[in-house]
Structure formats: structure tokens, C-alpha cells
């Protein structure tokens, strides 16, 4: 993926690095009969992506991604694939933030998340923030395939640099397809090599940015009302909740830091979307 050609990396097409780690974690959630509890017939961690099943809630299965070592480093090729089969309810979180770090060998790292949600299934993808450390170079893709009656809650948070340091290079593309059409397609490019990112049109000094996407075909058959979040003037960040051109609501927010970003997203979820995260 380059700035000129922000095509999403596809499985198996990434060039093999001369060094660096290659790991793909896989999760499959399956409903035990109609309305039954969700099982996890596939729960395969790999390399730095260890998976833990945690106590579920109702029929839902919960998985926590545990970073078993420091990753992604330059040159690494990491991926997570999660499938919620028909009628399943799957909730995925992470134990800690993911920190993109420079590697011993030059070259960028990739991190590809592929989520598939079948009819009647619900997937909540709620990882912790991705932090782009100084000197790192990460290209991330998140690709979601939704069946017509699939439901999704997806949070994505990017933090540009650890405290007091400049950001690394971070490119990320989020593509959500629903019933064969693209519902949302967004690429962000921040840090060295991305022209214009730190301007009043894009981030304007904010070092944390994130989105919360909720796809609910029945609930958002009528578009959600637009809400503005936060106050530009108080320095605590700002955002907007808006309907997509499809049955979905998207919160977009920018903030000075990860804490205030999470506050904006949580506030939108609780007060305006009536969902708990």
C-alpha cells in the first residue's frame, strides 16, 4: 500500500519480508442452535497474537486478544481473522494497546484485520488503541464483510506517538462491505511521508483520532440524527455522530490524547446510541 495507491492489502499478496514475524490469529464463532449459546470452534492464536476466551454475557462468546510479545515491529506481517457465523454473538477486546514500534530491520509492518459477520450474527470488535511510536511504519487494513442482517459494533482508535514523542508513519484503511455494496471506505495517513495530515483540514494538532461504527439494519433503517460531540473551544476534542448512506451510524472524533478520545466515543455510545461498550 502506498499513498498513491491505497488499495487494501489482500491476504497472501503482501511481499514476504526478509526478516520479521508472520502470524495470523483465527476466531470462528458458531451459534449452538437457534438462540443458543455461541461456541468457539476455532480459537487459534499465533505468535504475538494470543487469544483468551473470557466469561461471556448471555449467549455471547467473548475473546480477549492478549499481546504475548512486543509487536508489530518493522517487517512484521500480522493478521487477525474473525468470523461470526449465522446467529452467533461474538465480542472481541484486547488486553492492552497495540504499539507499533520500529524494527531492527528497515521496512514497514502490516496488520490486517478481517471480520466476517453472517446473517443474524452480531460482532463487537472493540480493541484497545493502536499507538504509533516514533520511527515506526505501520500499514493497517480493517476489512469487514457483513451479510444483509448482520450487526456490527466496531471501534478504532489511533494514537500518534507515545507521550511527548513525534508520531511514526501510520496508514490505515477501513472498508466495510454490506450485502455486496461498500458501506464505508476510509483511509487515514498520518506522520512522516503523509502530506497535509497535521493541518486544520485533517487533525490540527490532535494526537488521537477514532471512530465508532454501529451497523444495525433494523434500527437504522431510518437514519440516526446528527449530533455534535465535545466543544472545539475547550481543547478536549470534538466529534460528530452521523448516519452513513446505509443503515449505520458513525462517530468520528479527534482529541488531544487517547483518554479524551475514549471519553468522546463512550459518551456518544452511551448517550446517543444507547449501547454499552
Amino acid at each position: 500500500m502506498t499513498l498513491a495507491v491505497p488499495a487494501p492489502a489482500r491476504p497472501g499478496t503482501a511481499a514476504l519480508p526478509t526478516a520479521g514475524l508472520r502470524a495470523t490469529a483465527r476466531i470462528t464463532a458458531r451459534a449452538d442452535g437457534v438462540g443458543g449459546a455461541t461456541r468457539l470452534p476455532v480459537l487459534d492464536g499465533d505468535g504475538p497474537l494470543a487469544l483468551r476466551r473470557v466469561r461471556g454475557y448471555g449467549h455471547q462468546a467473548r475473546v480477549c486478544v492478549v499481546g504475548a510479545m512486543s509487536a508489530p515491529l518493522g517487517g512484521d506481517r500480522l493478521a487477525i481473522e474473525a468470523v461470526a457465523e449465522e446467529g452467533a454473538a461474538l465480542h472481541i477486546t484486547a488486553a492492552a494497546a497495540t504499539v507499533a514500534l520500529p524494527g531492527r530491520n528497515a521496512g514497514h509492518a502490516t496488520y490486517d484485520v478481517r471480520l466476517t459477520v453472517a446473517d443474524g450474527a452480531r460482532l463487537e470488535w472493540l480493541p484497545e488503541p493502536l499507538i504509533s511510536a516514533a520511527g515506526s511504519d505501520l500499514r493497517m487494513t480493517t476489512t469487514v464483510e457483513l451479510a444483509p442482517t448482520a450487526r456490527l459494533v466496531l471501534r478504532e482508535e489511533q494514537v500518534l506517538g507515545r507521550t511527548g514523542e513525534p508520531t511514526g508513519a501510520l496508514r490505515s484503511r477501513l472498508t466495510v462491505r454490506r450485502a455486496g455494496r461498500t458501506l464505508l471506505d476510509q483511509e487515514t495517513a498520518y506522520g512522516p511521508g503523509a502530506p497535509g495530515w497535521d493541518t486544520a483540514a485533517v487533525l490540527d494538532g490532535h494526537r488521537a483520532t477514532g471512530q465508532l461504527l454501529v451497523v444495525e439494519p433494523e434500527r437504522y433503517a431510518e437514519p440516526v440524527g446528527v449530533r455534535l460531540l465535545g466543544e472545539a473551544a475547550d481543547g478536549a476534542g470534538q466529534g460528530v455522530l452521523a448516519p452513513l448512506a446505509g443503515p449505520a451510524a458513525l462517530v468520528t472524533a479527534v482529541a488531544p490524547d487517547a483518554l479524551r478520545l475514549r471519553h468522546l466515543l463512550d459518551e456518544a455510545a452511551r448517550s446517543h446510541l444507547q449501547i454499552g461498550l
Binding site: 491505497p6 472498508t175 471506505d185 483540514a201 485533517v202 490540527d204 483520532t209 446528527v226 455534535l228 460528530v240
Partner: peptide
């Protein structure tokens, strides 16, 4: 297909357009 087309986003343009 149309996935080849750029999708560069500008969070502040989106937020301030609604404001």
C-alpha cells in the same frame, strides 16, 4: 474495481462540515 480509488479521510473536514 472502485476499491482502487483513493479513500483519504479528513476527520476535521467531516466534523466541522456538520457543525
Amino acid at each position: 474495481g472502485t476499491d482502487a480509488l483513493p479513500a483519504a479521510s479528513a476527520p476535521l473536514l467531516d466534523i466541522t462540515a456538520e457543525a
